[in-house]
Design a protein around this nucleic acid. Sequence first.
DNA 1: AATGAATGAGTTTTCATTCAT
DNA 2: GATGAATGAAAACTCATTCAT
Lengths: 208, 208, 208, 208
Amino acid sequence: MPTIICKTGKIPPKPPQKLTRGAQRREAILDSALRIICSEGIQNLTTRKAAEGAGITEGALYRHFSGKGEMLRCLVERLAEGSRIEKDGSTGWAGIEAFLRVRVKRVIREPELAKILFSEFMFTNEPACEDLMFQLMHRNLEELSVYFEQAQKAGELRDDIPPKTLFRLIFGPIRLVIQQWGLTEGSFPLEEEADRIIQTLKSILKSP
Amino acid sequence: MPTIICKTGKIPPKPPQKLTRGAQRREAILDSALRIICSEGIQNLTTRKAAEGAGITEGALYRHFSGKGEMLRCLVERLAEGSRIEKDGSTGWAGIEAFLRVRVKRVIREPELAKILFSEFMFTNEPACEDLMFQLMHRNLEELSVYFEQAQKAGELRDDIPPKTLFRLIFGPIRLVIQQWGLTEGSFPLEEEADRIIQTLKSILKSP
Amino acid sequence: MPTIICKTGKIPPKPPQKLTRGAQRREAILDSALRIICSEGIQNLTTRKAAEGAGITEGALYRHFSGKGEMLRCLVERLAEGSRIEKDGSTGWAGIEAFLRVRVKRVIREPELAKILFSEFMFTNEPACEDLMFQLMHRNLEELSVYFEQAQKAGELRDDIPPKTLFRLIFGPIRLVIQQWGLTEGSFPLEEEADRIIQTLKSILKSP
Amino acid sequence: MPTIICKTGKIPPKPPQKLTRGAQRREAILDSALRIICSEGIQNLTTRKAAEGAGITEGALYRHFSGKGEMLRCLVERLAEGSRIEKDGSTGWAGIEAFLRVRVKRVIREPELAKILFSEFMFTNEPACEDLMFQLMHRNLEELSVYFEQAQKAGELRDDIPPKTLFRLIFGPIRLVIQQWGLTEGSFPLEEEADRIIQTLKSILKSP
DNA sequence: AATGAATGAGTTTTCATTCAT
DNA sequence: GATGAATGAAAACTCATTCAT
């Protein structure tokens, strides 16, 4: 239901679909929970803090989520969907670049994300989040694999490296630079550094 | 068993000095804590579980650590030291390869490490662990930078990429493959996949 | 029942404003804490006992007080206010007598008070209670000093003794008799003995 | 055995009887316990603190006392004996004055005592200390009563006041001034103020 | 929808005491 | 005599969750 393929190739900044008042509160709670995880760690996320950060009391939180577990699952879901939405129509190497840049731009827009977007293990122990994390990782591999094939057919990418290895060679550096940026609270120009990585990857991975 | 005798004939880093009984208990507690973090997440690590896993009662834990915080800090410290010890005398590209392989071998030897070794953010919120994580990351960059320069001088590595970018291009993929291996509970042959990455890196990064 | 209507026709200090349900619980908890201190000593006052004495669980206590410290501070505050309320309009030596009799009557009404009302030091070590004890002692001195001056002007009290000394000569014996009565669990007729002291003081301190 | 009547009327500053090494440690522990009670309150006295203050470990404390209870009982005993030792041979009103001055001098010598010497209730809840406190109070009454009779026979003290009331009139003010001095950490010249009280008492209580 | 009081189980930590060394 | 590790109980406080209002 949330997968919106944009045929025009543009990124709709905000889906025009208005949130009901109830859904707005849910979002506020999830925002609050995310903020707490990023600033205090998942081990310090409590229902009380999440509720208070959203301007309601602990008890009221249970009107919106069946419990802490569901809240976390929804948070991870939202996290996972986030990057998928903004796909444009690029293909081949341009598709790869778009995939990477979407993630970079997302953490620049929401800097707290830098800290947790690739901390998959953190959610691994929350029952019902584990599967989601796997799916997310797998979806990324699948999406990129499509681009790999296109790029290889188009002669933009050498074809002697298996897709899984390509995935690690290409996504690994971007993940690391985003994690470093988050860890150091944005101490360097992320977009620039990411660009350098992407350009270098393009040049060293091009068909010889 | 982990004590690797340096090829150069220098003093082995860990003198055979036996651990005092007290220090042995500390290690047992840290082992227990590490096991819990890996299997249940940091949010489920309690002093009680850590103590019981080491075969003592909760109260006794406080003979060995001033509290949960100190225990965690010591754990992170031990984690950070772990990979540094096993340096051999390699230089240039061989040094880079050794650096990466040491880490791969370490997680194969202690598979739980795969889950947390690169989850720096997890400890970011524990006061006094944050600095340690920074240092660790920085130390890695410095160590690799030395090899980069040697390799570039030896004509094994192209010299048109700044060290920070090289660091991300080379360490990023290995981090990712280790994280994937941990996340999937060792579902693929890590050493083989790491090798593929290393070989590919060597070939695509060599001086043109 | 303790609300004494002022003879001057002024507003009775405590308006009949009913306590909110929340405030009622606070009072119940403070009552319980006071009972425990008196019967088992401050060293045996625990949050659990205080809560159970008020008919709630330990955790619920924290809805009403931020912690044990705040609870104790509130208790001391209530203690300190207690005797101040019941001032009547007497002046001169009658004022002095009223001051002393109010305290005697209060401990007869609430016999546990006899044990702690003048155990200022007991609360001295509870941060934020210390100041309160000072204020209480000082307030007593100031109130009595007014009566001293009136009595001296009226020729009821010799005027060759400084107020601080008068304070000790007059209040000291009453404090002691109340402490003795509390210590011996009411083994003698307090009012009678207090009267004897007051009468004797009146006679030996009258203007020669 | 400890009651030493000095016929010469002098106060032997320290009994020449040497303490065995064992007894020395006991004293050191009691000193430490007293210091803690005075500075942190009885509710914060722990075996560990008492032991550490005496320079030994918790476990070693049990070589000297059977437990915390016995330690406290011994402390109270020592407290109670303290003032009794230093009796000189005075009689009549001089005896009364000596009784009061001995106590004043003692707290000047050991200022922490000011805080607890008359906080009888504090120890009332320590099993096996309660009786001791009663005895102490009673002994004081008996000792003073002897002097009262002598003074009345000698015409130094009016004889129309029962001894119990005299006890309160005379001891009450001194207790209060000592408590005030302790509470305010020695903010005024105790000896001077005590003197003023004693002189005033002498003058207002003399046979008319 | 929301509040605030309540609960029961859990958290970290401390305590008095014991005991092998 | 003394130490240091250990224990079991209890301390203060927090947490996820429920429910009457």
